[in-house]
Simulated scan of single mutants.
Amino acid sequence: MTEQHGDGEELRLFEAALAGDLQAFGDLLQLYRPQLTAFLNQRIGALLRARTDASDVVQEIALQGLGGTSSVQFLRSLGPLGCLKRLASHRLAEVCRRTFSERRNPNRERGGDLPGAQTFGLAEWLVDSLPSPSEALQRSEDILLLWEKLNSLEPDDLQLLNWVYFEKRTRREVAELLGIAEDTARQRVRRAVSKLTVLINRVDLGEPPDWKSAGGGAG
């Protein structure tokens, strides 16, 4: 949803910032700092609170600016506050990537990850497998939205989804890992994929990729 586009002075600063005026961008950021801080405090959940806070993210936005993150046309369509919120989400996604990238090990045992690492890696993979947004800011927003939803799933469902999508394990391998029959493994994976489909539809990202083609077939 597009944010309110602000009054004349805000729009003047916004247009100047889009044209590359760093002072105008800084002034715009200060103008919207209270709203942006409130947005970030709501968005930064328990998994990230120990690693960053709203002031850190605002500081990163101030230092990096618009930084070629998306086209001017796309940024303008968001309005001043909407644009700053997308920048904030983009920086949060980068915090997640830095925090979790070194903790994801495809050969790990169950439960061996930093909380959130498994779901963030899966969210990135799924967003990249769906019809890809052309704008970097939209991609980051989609990843964060899906990551937040994935964290609501049961650990067993997440493990199954991670195996068949992220690690590309076959149905036979999943059955061996769980110590169950292949047909039972297939049924469990289908249930997990059904739950994933519901989550993806809730954030309006389309349909998940076919788990069989991703690696969950009978091979």
Rank of each mutant, 00 (worst) to 15 (best):
E3Y: 13
Q4G: 14
H5C: 10
H5K: 13
G6K: 04
G6W: 03
G8P: 02
L11Q: 15
A17H: 05
D21P: 07
L22I: 05
Q23S: 07
D27F: 03
L28P: 11
L29F: 07
L29A: 03
L29R: 00
Q35L: 09
T37S: 14
T37R: 13
F39C: 03
F39I: 03
L40M: 04
N41S: 05
Q42L: 13
R43T: 15
I44C: 04
D56M: 08
D56F: 04
V58G: 02
E60N: 10
I61T: 05
L63C: 01
G67R: 07
T69F: 08
T69M: 09
S70G: 13
S70Q: 11
F74Y: 15
F74L: 10
L75V: 03
L75C: 07
R76M: 02
R76Y: 13
L78W: 01
L78G: 04
P80R: 01
L84Q: 06
K85T: 12
L87I: 06
A88V: 06
H90L: 09
R91E: 15
L92V: 12
A93S: 14
A93E: 13
E94M: 04
V95K: 01
C96I: 00
C96F: 02
R98P: 01
T99G: 06
T99S: 12
F100A: 06
S101H: 12
R103C: 08
N105K: 02
R108K: 07
G112F: 02
D113W: 08
T119F: 02
F120T: 06
F120C: 07
F120E: 12
G121V: 02
E124A: 06
E124Y: 00
L126Q: 07
L126T: 02
L126V: 05
V127M: 09
D128Y: 11
S129G: 13
S129L: 04
P131Q: 09
P131N: 08
S132I: 01
S132G: 04
S134K: 13
S134M: 07
A136N: 09
Q138A: 15
S140Q: 04
E141H: 14
L145I: 00
L145N: 14
W147N: 10
L153N: 06
E154F: 09
E154A: 10
P155C: 01
D157M: 05
L161Q: 00
F166W: 12
F166A: 14
E167W: 05
R169G: 05
R171M: 14
R171Q: 15
R172W: 06
R172H: 10
A175D: 12
G179E: 08
I180P: 04
E182D: 15
D183Q: 14
T184G: 08
R186A: 15
Q187S: 12
V189D: 06
R190M: 11
A192S: 12
A192N: 06
V193D: 09
T197M: 01
T197C: 00
L199K: 08
L199C: 07
R202M: 03
D204H: 15
D204W: 10
P208Q: 02
P208Y: 05
P209T: 01
P209I: 03
D210A: 11
D210S: 15
S213W: 09
G215N: 08
A218L: 10
